[in-house]
């Protein structure tokens, strides 16, 4: 039929691209995860589940998964809560609000490398911006945030919330403006306070937005790479060695692409299962609310 032929013809370039750069690569990642494959010497040997066994026993990969879990578990809920708070602020009718929205959005479109360079400076002991401000108030100002294993992860999380505020804020703004006004009128008639209205009207109505924000930023959180590469190289003492960086060093510093493939596939399964769980939990709340 003419219609079917036209449909496939129009989608053909995008479909071929999708096959080459997304679908086949996933299959190929699974394939190469069964091989001991060194990219430089270009020799490969089938070892079955050997790579999976190795990354399980090695411990370094598991630790990086744990680090990524910590990074994601901290940055996603705090980031979403901050974005919701800011969105509530900038959906009020106040003078100059559009200028503020633009400012809040700015960091998220900036070069991540430049942002990382700025924040290395901000986190410096004594003279970095944060320590300088602490010093002004007479607080201890000698902490090397990126060089101390207890602080480095917190510093990365803090920066990620600053960077990613914009898009999340815009999503919540759209959600807030879409809440039907009669729900608030009904709540007011029932004598609900502003606080109660937030918890029982606004928040449940925003469940689809929250779901979208949480799932997309979880996927991003588990794949974080650039700030770690630029700012800590996984250190100090491996405390910021997240999965994205761990896979990078396996593949492109040690050239063990088979092992890296196994790690990538495990990461894919982790992201998939976390997303499904989030979908269930937040999706159910939507029905209750």
């Amino acid at each position: 039929m003419k219609r079917n032929r036209a449909g496939w013809l129009f989608t053909l370039p995008a479909t071929i691209h999708l096959l080459i750069f997304a679908v086949l690569p996933v299959g190929y990642t699974i394939f190469l995860s069964f091989y001991n494959w060194n990219l430089i010497r270009d020799e490969r040997r089938f070892i079955g589940l050997g790579n999976y066994l190795r990354i399980w026993q090695d411990g370094g990969f598991l630790k990086s998964v744990l680090n990524s879990a910590i990074y994601t578990a901290a940055s996603v809920p705090i980031g979403a809560a901050v974005a919701l708070g800011v969105a509530l602020l900038v959906t009020q009718k106040v003078k100059g609000v559009t200028a503020f929205r633009t400012l809040y959005f700015l960091p998220s479109v900036c070069s991540q490398v430049a942002i990382a360079m700025i924040w290395i400076y901000i986190f410096l002991p004594k003279k970095g911006m944060i320590n300088a401000v602490l010093g002004m108030f007479g607080a201890p100002n000698g902490t090397d945030f990126l060089g101390t294993s207890g602080w480095a992860m917190a510093a990365l999380v803090f920066m990620s919330i600053w960077v990613a505020l914009g898009p999340r804020m815009v999503l919540y703004m759209a959600g807030i403006l879409n809440v039907p006004g009669y729900l608030y009128e009904a709540a007011e008639l029932d004598g609900a306070t502003k606080n109660q209205q937030f918890w029982h009207v606004t928040l449940p109505q925003l469940a689809p937005t929250t779901l979208f924000v949480v799932i997309t930023s979880t996927i991003g959180g588990f794949q974080v790479f650039t700030p770690v590469y630029m700012m800590t190289k996984g250190g100090p003492e491996g405390s910021t060695d997240v999965v994205g960086y761990h896979i990078y060093s396996a593949a492109w510093e040690r050239f063990q692409v088979g092992e890296a493939g196994a790690m990538s596939f495990v990461l894919f399964l982790i992201i998939l299962s976390v997303s499904i769980i989030q979908f269930r939990v937040i999706g159910n709340k939507q029905v209750d609310g």
């Binding site: 039929m1 079917n4 449909g7 496939w8 989608t11 995008a14 479909t15 999708l18 750069f21 997304a22 679908v23 086949l24 690569p25 996933v26 190929y28 990642t29 190469l32 996927i219 794949q223 790479f225 999965v243 994205g244 896979i247 593949a251 692409v257 890296a260 493939g261 990538s264 596939f265 990461l267 894919f268 992201i271 998939l272 997303s275």
Partner: peptide, 24 residues
């Protein structure tokens, strides 16, 4: 025919871009 299938294929691919596809 197949428009719906293609759409879901595209949508699903957004999940595994990046880390999983870099080496291939």
């Amino acid at each position: 025919k197949g428009a719906q299938f293609l759409f879901w294929l595209f949508l699903a691919s957004m999940m595994f871009a990046g880390v999983v596809t870099q080496i291939p």
